[in-house]
Amino acid sequence: MTKIINHNHLRELESEAIFVMREIAAQFEKPVLLFSGGKDSIVLVHLAVKAFYPARIPFPLLHIDTGHNFQETLDYRDELVEKIGAKLYIGSVQASIDKGRATEEMGVGASRNKLQTVTLLDTLEELKADAAIGGGRRDEEKARAKERFFSHRDAFGQWDPKNQRPELWNLFNGKKNMGEHFRVFPISNWTEMDVWQYILMENIPMPSLYYTHKRRVFMRDGIWLAEAPFMELKEGEEIVELDVRCRTIGDISCTGLNLSTADNLEDIVKEVAASRVTERGGRSDDKRSEAAMEDRKKEGYF
């Protein structure tokens, strides 16, 4: 039997992403892959492994650790790094707070999500990274719809939406001055559905958080959040134990949980197909204002 690649839409997206991965390795001196433990960055790592096989991926992973991560995320991360033989750097938000580079939000609804930007930019500078590979997708949020594959950042790590380079065909321009860097998004053209279908097609092992499990949770502003020592409860908020799973994983303070019984990838794909709310609908960090993402991106967020 002739062995060929069944070139469906997922293979086309994969091919594009692998092309971008190889461009990054060719055009930049010190790229890093931003790994959050979420499904998008897990797919990124998978694509990087495929792009350079049988060689190891030619760049390290960087995890910005808020200190408020699910233990499952950290365990999964360490196992993955071990398996693919990659180097892992960790940027700690706690360390940024201790050094006085960032100030902790206080009170109910406090989150370290925004503080990550400081840690991220500091760590990229320490590592002298000239490209940070991220799992951002254009379908996630409207401020992302105009993002480039190769997104230029000035010497302060900032994104200027009005001063982005046009991208034509598959000719990517990664030229920059000293001190500037790029954010590169190989899965720009993927949707949430594509990501899950691809995970299913490739049978990529996922952290247990994505499958249904019993967890102690409470409801805030219509979103189920996980119980954790640093999550202060408001009056009237009550802890209950439910069957839930994550649709997107950030740190505990802003990751909404879905009521679900999906315990395998096929059921997750079906659930995503039937869903009538966007995945970021469960991210309390996006609810802060209509232009919340646009503002965070300008400052240098992921």
């Binding site: 002739t2 690649i5 086309e12």
Partner: peptide, 9 residues
Amino acid sequence: IDEALPSQS
């Protein structure tokens, strides 16, 4: 593989 087509990486 036995055959590679346009746009495949």
